[in-house]
Design a protein around this nucleic acid. Structure first.
Lengths: 203, 203
DNA sequence: GTCTATAGAAGGATAGAC
DNA sequence: GTCTATCCTTCTATAGAC
């Protein structure tokens, strides 16, 4: 593959990412993607064969990007409380820079759960719990976090971080009436979220 | 409008609701809706003129249904803690019975924010805060809830309740590996969520 | 009010020249 | 590797009979 191929293929991929994030799989048009990449439709098919294959390429890249943000939590040498603060600060900052990702992922997952299963197969969930337990055994006891409560706690943390972006359109409409901006709300949230969760977990 | 009209129009509306919930505006097909209502496509247009008008009718009905579940919180004669428990129990039970609503609403809102603004115009957000402050002045002070922290707290409560359903496809895939079911997780959540939030708010 | 048939437009995909 | 032209299917929407 020569330099030109790479340039064109990348331009297509970037244009497709942009259009799919905006419109979703069903709403996206191959013509829109071609226009944004300043090439013609035929070339899309030359590189990616079908709309479905192009979408899958984009989806897997994006999903990987989102979940990779969870990884450092399991390796950083920090106390549990510091990890919670670290996670919210880093994850919300990442979402600030990629605000359309949550809605996109959640929507497409529900439309096609099989796609998600394929990606999750590369992750060993039970291993992650083991790592956490090894690193933070004493703190888990102190905070009263058991293996049974992990699903509730983890989904609560994810919810607090992700939901505002998934519901952005709704929140912006509400905040308008309260004279606050989505941006300042999100900035506040990096600290509020950590305080809230730590408070709830402390015995 | 005679009895027969009403029956057909209702059948169409119900079929459309079902298809739109499943596929979203872009993915839904008029033919699917006609099939599910066991009539033909032409009749859809006779009653609702265009796909867009049909979708709007469905969307407004669904959105109203979802938000109406928030209303009792502002009228029930309960303490603040009881209201929080009441809300999670009732709201999550409602979502159990209508699991596809959150993903649908969030997705369509982001695709067309104007639609949401129209619905929210019927709600006086600032009034709601006044009502809450009047009913629970002492408790708000005791819990350290100020007008400034309301957006963070309210969105956190909504997130905890709604997110699991919006992310259902993802969570089911993860829970599968942990040998727990989405249903039992949701059942637990009605109490976990209330405990978690009350703990976080208590000074 | 309900149906069949079809118009008319749009979209994904391919053929074939360069 | 890139383009133009076009095929073929699908979809919304309407015309017109009953």
């Amino acid at each position: 593959m020569g330099e030109n191929d790479k340039l064109t293929e990348e331009r297509i991929f970037d244009a497709a990412t942009d259009v799919f994030l905006d419109k979703g799989m069903d709403g996206a048009r191959m013509q829109d993607i071609a226009d944004r990449a300043t090439i013609n439709k035929a070339l899309l098919h030359y590189y990616y064969r079908t709309k479905d294959k192009l979408f899958n390429a984009v989806f897997e890249k994006i999903a990987g990007k989102l979940f990779s943000k969870f990884a450092p939590v399991f390796s950083e040498n920090l106390s549990l409380e510091e990890k919670i603060r670290f996670f919210f600060r880093e994850h919300i900052t990442f979402l600030q820079q990629n605000p359309r990702l949550p809605a996109f992922i959640l929507n497409e997952i529900n439309r096609n759960p099989a796609r998600m299963r394929k990606i999750l197969n590369n992750i060993d969930i039970n291993k992650l719990w083991s790592v956490l337990e090894e690193q933070h055994h004493d703190e888990l006891v102190r905070y009263n976090i058991t293996k049974e409560s992990i699903p509730q706690i983890m989904t609560t943390i994810a919810a607090i971080s992700v939901f505002p972006f998934a519901a952005r359109g709704l929140l912006e409409a509400i905040f308008e009436k309260m004279n606050i901006t989505f941006d300042s709300y999100i900035e506040e949230r990096k600290v509020f979220a950590a305080d809230f969760v730590i408070k709830a977990l402390t015995k």
